[in-house]
């Protein structure tokens, strides 16, 4: 075993590499990185548009429309940033990779650039502008979702291990499937009888947890007729995977028929009242 301290002054005789690149090299660096950046940004934009439309479910509500546009806009905003990081790191490998003299000897030292106030400033400024943009976009989307429309429909959502059921308190109807009318804002009052569940009507683009002893609220305005799925988004034990329900957005007329079909019998209204009492007593 050698207990010698390695020699630190080995390359002290070598002159420092120049801090400033020569103009020609600098031009090459900037041009190639800019070109790479443009190409990658274009790819990023194309991917953003294609993926948003191909992957996200088609919009069935104002809120899902908001999700789709947010994902698209954020992806477009991120594309140039991602492209810049990738362009410079790819270029660093292409242009600055140095073959060492032998396997165990490092390449000669690079210019000791210890920082660049302008680069740091521009970087901070750009990321701050992007953050402000994200925040403003998010807050405006969010506050638009807080508006309560007149004549909204209230649906009580009850989660329990491992089934959803839905109560229409005005009509004194309960159901295993969630049926909502087109074009009318629906307010979901969500609660749970045991553990925390996540009420997630997927294609409606909103979700909120179902908490025992508490009522949480979300609102959606369905904009397209069709079928959607309600899933549970919060791990709730054994049959969490099977905790789903079917949903339909139907015309106002079909909605009336649905309520009539489920008939507000005395038995049903007694059950609805009993369930309400149970939840109140939690």
């Amino acid at each position: 075993m050698s207990s010698e301290h390695p020699d630190l002054s080995a390359d002290a005789t070598v002159a420092s590499p120049p801090l400033k690149p020569d103009a020609k090299e600098n031009k090459k660096n900037v041009t190639v990185i800019a070109a790479l950046w443009l190409v990658l940004t274009a790819i990023g934009i194309a991917l953003s548009i294609w993926l948003t439309s191909a992957l996200l479910p088609s919009s069935m509500s104002t809120e899902m429309g908001g999700v789709r546009s947010t994902v698209l806009v954020f992806s477009l905003a991120a594309a140039p940033v991602v492209a810049f990081v990738l362009a410079t790191s790819i270029y660093s490998l292409l242009a600055w990779r140095k073959a060492p003299g032998s396997a165990d000897v490092p390449p000669p030292d690079a210019p000791p650039l210890r920082g660049n106030a302008a680069a740091t400033g521009i970087w901070l400024l750009t990321s701050s502008v992007l953050v402000v943009f994200l925040l403003v976009w998010g807050l405006s989307e969010w506050s638009a979702q807080q508006v309560v429309q007149p004549n909204d429909l209230v649906v009580k959502v009850t989660g329990q291990q491992w089934i959803w059921n839905f109560t229409y308190p005005d009509a004194k109807v309960d159901s295993h499937a969630l049926v909502v009318p087109l074009g009318r804002q629906v307010q979901f009052n969500v609660t749970s009888l045991d553990v925390t569940h996540g009420f997630w009507p997927v294609q409606l683009g909103q979700q909120v947890d179902a908490n025992p002893g508490l009522v949480t609220t979300i609102r959606v305005t369905p904009t397209h007729l069709g079928h959607f799925v309600v899933r549970c988004s919060q791990l709730c034990g054994l049959y969490h995977a099977y905790m789903y329900a079917q949903g339909d957005v139907v015309t106002a007329k079909a909605f009336e028929q649905f309520l009539e079909h489920h008939g507000a019998s005395a038995a049903t209204s007694a059950k609805v009242a009993l369930l309400a009492a149970r939840q109140g007593g939690q």
Partner: peptide
């Protein structure tokens, strides 16, 4: 960033 945005997180959460 999608997850940090409340309206988008309402889709992606969980």
């Amino acid at each position: 960033i999608y997850l940090s945005d409340v309206p988008a997180d309402n889709y992606f959460h969980g």
